[in-house]
Each structure stands twice: as structure tokens, then as C-alpha cells.
Amino acid sequence: MDSPLVSVGLPLALAVIMFGLGLSLTVGDFTRIAKTPRIVAIALVCQVLLLPAIAFGLVLAFGLSPILAVGMMLLAASPGGTTANLYSHLFRGDVALNVSLTAVNSVIAVVTVPVVTNFAIGYFEPDGAGSLGLQLGKVVQVFAIVLVPVAIGMLVRHLSPAFADRMDRPVRIGSALVLLLVIVGTVVAERDTLGSSLADVGAIAVAFCLFSLAIGYFVPRLLGAAERQSIACSMEIGIHNSTIAITIAISVLDSTEMAIPAAVYGVLMFPLAAIFGWLITRRRAPATVAAE
């Protein structure tokens, strides 16, 4: 695909979103994980190992076509989205933990996204798809898409914290609009096959989102994490950066159809995360909430 959406729009869209993430990060967000290494390790195991395994099982159970199956695995490997911080704040999660997890996940994704996607391509063997693998050129592309804008945003915050604070809200709003445009553009590009794709992907996207949110909350909680930490993990693991998955599917693997699972998930995850957050917080006693 050589349309402006692919050649200019998608990289620019992701750059805006990741730049916005960088504006909210400091070096301390990376070093803070030393204070809660066990919780961070639990969340990362859920994100990096459990989610791809769950997605793989769901793909087999739902019998997705090879190209959509790879798209679903690509989505599962993508890191948490910046909106997870907002949702964690709304439902009284540990936002500082969210920020740290987002920072670390964005770095780890440089390795995990190619590995998981390459495994999926090798297993499902979709027609016409290339291979991400760990080829230097592909890794550099992912690195540039994900980390360079983050680093620039962090540099801007370091040089002018006041400017970064002023820009936080506009960039967040812009990021949401950009994400919407990316999803709409992907849907329009696949409008001829959209009906069948939505029918194939809608149910598995809902199932995967609910599994992600539940695993992110209940696994840390069962392993001794505090309520606020578990909420943070749930939002971080359940709210994916679907723009990364869409960008890699279209710009790197040259497949708009492969981007459909991420586009559908990008729409569904927000109301599902809101409902899930409401359900897990409404049962908490007001005294407990106040104490936190």
C-alpha cells in the first residue's frame, strides 16, 4: 500500500502519540521500578508471556483466517497504551506504576513485537505476508516508530518541564483524535471486506480484552499486590497501544487486513475497560477507597 495514509499518516500518527508519552516521562519513571520490582515483574510476565499465549489459544478456538490470526498476535504483543494512565487515575489505580510500566513496556516491545509476530507468521503462514523476524532493518523500523519520539518527548520535558505540562492535555487530545483517524482510515481501506472481518474479529476482540483486563487485575491481586497496584496492572495490560500494531501491520508488513484486529480492539477496549473498572471498584467499601 502506497497511499499517503501509509507512507506519511501512520508514522506521523504514531509519532504524535509516542511523543505525547515521552512528554509525561522522566528518567525516574524507569528507575522507579526498583522500588516495586516484584509487582513490575508480575505485570511484565502477564503482558509479555500470558497475553500472547491467551491470544494464541483464542485464535485457534475462534478459527481465524491466517492473516487475521497474525494481526491478533501482533496486537497481543503490543505494549500498553498511554490511555491506561487516565483509566488508572479514574478508577484510583497506582498511576505512578502505570507510567513506569508503560515506559518499560515501550522499550521491551522493540524485541517482543518482532519475536511474537514472526512466530505467528511462521505458524499460520498467511499469504503475501513478509516476516518481521529479528532482521536488523525491521528492528530499526520498530525502534524508530516506538522509541525515538518517546526520547524526544522526554528531552523536551527535561529541558522545559513547564512547557511539557502545558502541552500534556493538548497532546493527549490530539493523540486520541489521531488514533481515531488511524482506525477510521484502516476501516475505510478495508471497507470491501469489513463486514466479514468484523464478524470474524469482533467476538475474539471482546474476549481478548476481557481476558487481558481480568488477568491484569486478578493475577497480581492473587500474588499479593495491593488493590491500587492491581488496578494499574489491569489497565496497563488491558489497554493496548493499538496504533503500534496497526502501523506495523500496514507500514512494515504491507497488510491492511492484518491491522483489522487492532483497529477493532482500539474501539472496543475503551468502553470495556470502563465497565471493568467500574465493576472492580464498586464493590470496594467507601472507607477502603478513602484510605487509599
Rank of each mutant, 00 (worst) to 15 (best):
M269P: 02
I42S: 00
V267M: 14
M72R: 07
V107M: 02
G185E: 09
R32D: 02
V148T: 00
L253E: 05
P261S: 04
L25C: 12
I17G: 09
L155E: 06
F211C: 01
G28S: 09
R32V: 04
F276V: 05
V289M: 08
L132R: 09
V184H: 01
A232R: 05
A69T: 03
F208S: 08
I280V: 13
S255N: 11
L64H: 11
L213T: 03
I246D: 00
N105P: 00
M235W: 01
L49I: 07
R191H: 14
D29H: 06
F211G: 05
T256Q: 14
G195V: 00
V182I: 13
L213H: 15
L21C: 01
L14P: 11
G130W: 05
V187Y: 08
A199V: 04
S230P: 04
A214C: 12
S175D: 09
S88T: 07
L25G: 10
F270G: 08
L21D: 02
A69I: 13
I54H: 03
A203L: 14
I33M: 04
F30P: 01
I108R: 03
L75Q: 04
I39T: 05
G153N: 15
A129G: 09
R157E: 11
E236F: 13
D192G: 12
V107A: 10
I280Y: 01
I67W: 01
E292N: 07
G224W: 10
S197E: 01
A225D: 07
G266M: 08
A55W: 03
A225H: 06
P161S: 14
G137S: 09
L222F: 13
V182M: 03
V187R: 15
L198Q: 13
P149R: 05
A53Q: 04
E257F: 08
A285E: 10
A203R: 03
D2C: 02
N98F: 04
P170T: 11
W278K: 10
D254M: 09
D168R: 15
G238K: 02
A225N: 11
Q229D: 13
I215F: 02
M1I: 05
V110P: 12
A207Y: 12
N118C: 12
P66F: 06
N105V: 07
H158P: 15
L147G: 04
G133R: 03
L213Q: 12
V156F: 15
V219N: 06
F62L: 10
I173A: 00
A53R: 10
G174Q: 12
G153K: 04
F163Y: 14
L136N: 15
A203F: 08
I121N: 14
V59E: 06
R92C: 09
F211Q: 03
L272Y: 08
L210W: 05
L134W: 12
L49T: 06
G133K: 00
L272S: 13
R228S: 08
